[in-house]
Computed example of a mutant assay.
Amino acid sequence: MLALGASTRRPKRQQFYDLYPPTFRRVEQLFAFIAQSRNFILFVLLEVLCFYFVVNTNNYWSASFFNTSNRYAAQMLAWSNSAREYTNLRQVNADLAAENKRLTTQLTQRQQGSPAAPTAYKADSLFANRFQFTVAKVINNTTTLANNTLTIDKGTADGIRPGMGVISPTGIVGRVRFCNEHYSVVTSILHSEFRVSARLVKAEEIGTARWPGIDPTRMTLVDISRNKPVSKGDSVMTSEYNSVFPPGILIGRISEVRTQPAQPFHDLSVALSTNFSSLLYVYVVDNKQAEQQSQVEKQIDSEK
């Protein structure tokens, strides 16, 4: 019986093969490849050894190898840094948007606290700090329609309400129209019904900016008296006569000046400062005193 049991016992190698057949097969294939390619592998090792001795015993080849290896290493490092920077662009853009929000808030507070005027007027802190900003990302945008809109990734859960103004780091964008909890639709300034009170800075004249519905890079500025001197390149900004946008937000610059006979106003074309085709981040403007201003102005209408 013992002899019979001993004769049926498998060798340890066969037991390992039964337990791990794929692993065992790969190991056998690896050793078989090394055995078949031993001459080539020995040749490569000898070449590497010769190269090592040549570089380390000859000053010219040592310097050449050092310079060449450093050049390729620097190139590889540059490619690696470029790839890393590209993958971090989303976070960089978000950080820049947050920083622009902080700077825009500070600038608006300074402008509202001490407006550029020849009087000694100085606003109180409540009025100067009435504008607050929320960073939002544009997730949909149209520029080729007669009435264009944007969609942003902030809604009522973030304090966004219909009627709020929307600006970008380069100028005005539009006004919030609809909201749900996490998204909002913005009426773009590239809309047939959009109007905004604008100030021609150099001429110190107030007019109305509107989009004629043709070129997404141009608006029209109307109601500017032809008696006022106007030149190409003059800045057009939001005026103090609206509660949606802070005053002093750039709209664009005069690109064409036309004067029609028997007309009391200039016909001005404004090159928009905001490039809507590449718009990525915007700031939603919350005027904390807009409701109080609206209530007071409604009393005038009720008395008529």
Score class of each variant (00 low, 15 high):
M1P: 02
A3D: 15
G5A: 07
A6I: 02
R10E: 08
P11H: 13
R13K: 14
D18C: 02
L19Y: 02
L19A: 04
P22A: 00
P22Y: 00
F24E: 00
R25M: 06
R26Q: 05
R26E: 01
Q29E: 09
F31R: 15
A32P: 03
F33P: 00
F33D: 10
I34P: 00
A35S: 14
A35L: 08
S37N: 15
I41E: 03
I41H: 07
I41Q: 06
F43C: 05
E47Q: 13
V48N: 14
C50W: 14
F53P: 04
V54R: 14
V55P: 08
Y60V: 12
S62N: 15
F66A: 13
F66I: 05
N70P: 01
R71K: 13
Y72H: 09
Y72A: 03
Y72I: 04
A73V: 00
A83C: 04
R84Y: 08
T87K: 04
L96M: 11
L96T: 04
A98E: 13
N100Q: 13
K101G: 06
K101M: 15
L103A: 13
T108Y: 07
Q111G: 08
Q111K: 14
Q112P: 03
Q112E: 15
G113Y: 14
G113D: 10
G113L: 14
S114A: 14
A116C: 06
A117S: 11
A117V: 13
P118I: 08
T119A: 07
A120W: 10
Y121P: 05
K122P: 05
K122H: 13
F131Q: 06
Q132S: 13
Q132W: 09
T134Y: 06
A136N: 04
K137H: 12
V138D: 04
I139R: 05
N141R: 09
N148T: 08
D153L: 06
K154S: 01
G155D: 03
D158C: 02
R161A: 04
R161G: 00
P162W: 01
M164W: 07
V166M: 00
S168P: 08
I172G: 07
I172L: 12
V173F: 03
G174C: 02
G174T: 02
G174H: 04
R175L: 00
R175K: 11
V176K: 01
C179H: 01
Y183G: 00
S184L: 01
S184W: 01
S184K: 00
V185D: 03
T187V: 01
T187L: 01
S188K: 04
R195L: 08
R199V: 06
L200N: 11
E204Y: 05
E205H: 11
T208E: 03
G213H: 06
L221H: 07
P229N: 09
K232T: 13
S235K: 15
T238I: 12
P246N: 09
P247H: 10
P247G: 03
L250C: 08
S255E: 10
V257P: 10
H266V: 08
H266L: 14
L268Y: 11
S273H: 12
T274F: 09
F276K: 01
L280R: 05
L280T: 03
V282T: 09
N287G: 05
A290K: 14
Q293F: 10
Q293W: 07
K298H: 14
K298D: 12
D301F: 15
